[in-house]
């Protein structure tokens, strides 16, 4: 990777993105057996800087760092000095003074990761673990990893795959990162949702836009259902949950309309019964738990590539 940070999918060229996916696959191969832990980042310190609740993402990064033998400091905004008004700058500088070489930041406002990387406040590597409505690049990487594993003929190129992202595109960092990454890999992406939840500027994105899930469902090789945040329901983006689920939920009828080869994805946490029915979430076509497992691998790869650890051993090393 040419960038010292992972702030946006845009930091990765297509070949670098493939390098991340290949590295993750290599790590998967090595840690598949008895050896779960590699010594590559021994003695190095990473910090989870979480200003927003996200247990699963934090745990995934923590597992990734620990499997590479890094020290992990967890910082969460709740109960910390942030609630007393300490700034992002002061918090980050404090943690760097404690030895953090790489900061994984989750923040409720867009651009915070980039600001942390480019403001000159700290020298640490910065990994964006989700910033506001902007990006969540490791989620897109794990999604691409998951798609690739199900379409081996598209190992180096997604051309010919049609991938639907369904729901609240407007507020979704997962959607933004996936649009960038999946299209860079060659996939055809279609954004599906009510017009109120499609960003005004999406007309300039290299994607198709559709307001009808039924019109698209049979064309998709992968369908990515986005979580509907409860606050959207009170803000007039759509009239009722029931209407949303009827038009954009992945229920039984639509599950039948999916190609047999298509995979069902969700970044979690799911609202079962709203954007996805239990039958869909638990169907054989669902790869939602694989996504979780792949998340750890992809994050290991990112930490490894950014921190330049000792080479990945080709044979088992017990730690």
């Amino acid at each position: 990777m040419h960038s010292p940070h992972l702030l946006s999918v845009k930091d990765l060229s297509k070949s670098e993105a493939l390098e991340v996916l290949d590295t993750a696959r290599e790590l998967s191969r090595i840690t598949d057996g008895a050896i779960k832990k590699l010594p590559t980042l021994r003695g190095r310190t990473v910090v989870n800087l979480f200003f927003e609740d996200s247990t699963r993402t934090r745990l995934s990064f923590e597992a990734a760092a620990k499997r590479l033998s890094a020290e992990v400091i967890n910082f969460s905004a709740k109960g910390s000095s942030v609630s007393k008004g300490e700034s992002l700058k002061d918090t980050a500088q404090t943690l760097e003074a404690m030895g953090a070489e790489l900061m994984i930041i989750r923040h409720p406002t867009s651009g915070s990761a980039q600001r942390l990387a480019e403001s000159g406040w700290v020298n640490a590597h910065i990994v964006n673990a989700g910033d506001g409505m902007h990006e969540h690049p490791t989620q897109a990487l794990l999604d691409a990893y998951t798609i690739r594993s199900h379409f081996p003929e598209h190992d180096r190129d997604f051309t010919g795959l049609r991938i639907g992202i369904v729901g609240d595109i407007l507020h979704s960092r997962v959607a933004r990162s996936n649009v960038l990454l999946l299209t860079a890999l060659g996939a055809q992406v279609v954004l599906i949702g009510p017009p109120t939840l499609i960003p005004i500027g999406a007309i300039s994105w290299p994607v198709d836009i559709s307001y009808s899930l039924d019109a698209e469902i049979g064309t998709l090789d992968a369908i990515m259902m986005l979580r509907v945040q409860s606050e959207r329901m009170t803000d007039a983006f759509f009239p009722t949950e029931r209407e949303y689920a009827r038009d954009f939920g992945l229920g039984t009828e639509r599950l039948k309309a999916l190609k047999r080869s298509a995979i069902i994805m969700h970044p979690g946490p799911m609202n079962r019964g709203l954007e996805i029915s239990a039958a869909s979430a638990d169907s054989p076509q669902s790869v939602i738990l694989e996504q979780v497992a792949n998340g750890v691998l992809v994050r290991m790869a990112i930490l490894y590539l950014l921190m330049g650890g000792t080479p990945i051993p080709t044979e088992g090393v017990l730690v």
């Binding site: 867009s110 651009g111 409505m133 902007h134 933004r176 960003p199 005004i200 500027g201 999406a202 300039s204």
Partner: peptide
Amino acid sequence: SQMNEGVVSSRLGLKGWP
């Protein structure tokens, strides 16, 4: 709202100011 609503705000994920 954080910035002009348009192509840039949509990409940056900053709340638009139409």
